[in-house]
């Protein structure tokens, strides 16, 4: 089987998404959760660039990917800011300790 360029990219996208979701499931530290979210977003970003390439409108794909970079940086900043506050007021970064609000 011939490995064409898009297929390699698809494999990389799926790999990044897999790592991201797997990370979200097993990681307990809040900062690592933010890292896992970033890995997921990078997979989505690559998917947008590939979509632009396959649709023959590379510039649209690229501009969507750049917009996603901005959006995803904002989310990372908010996630990390929350992590700082959580460390300060709850005293631990373990998400296992974030379960006071039950039911």
């Amino acid at each position: 089987m011939q490995w064409s360029f898009p297929m390699i990219v698809i494999v990389v996208v799926l790999g990044l998404l897999g790592i991201g979701f797997y990370g979200l499931l097993i990681v307990r530290n809040l900062i690592k959760v933010v890292v896992a979210l970033q890995v997921l977003a990078k997979g989505a970003m690559l998917a947008l660039v590939l979509a632009g390439e396959l649709a023959g409108q590379i510039y649209i794909g690229d501009s969507m990917a750049i917009t996603l970079i901005v959006a995803d940086t904002i989310v990372a900043v908010i996630g990390l800011a929350l992590a700082v506050q959580v460390r300060r007021h709850i005293g631990s970064l373990d998400i296992g300790h974030l379960s006071k609000l039950r039911r």
Binding site: L24, V33, G79, L82, V86, I95, L98, K100, L101
Partner: peptide, 11 residues
Amino acid sequence: GALEAGVKYVI
């Protein structure tokens, strides 16, 4: 409580 809700919501 608000921090916990915020973290869950963001993720």
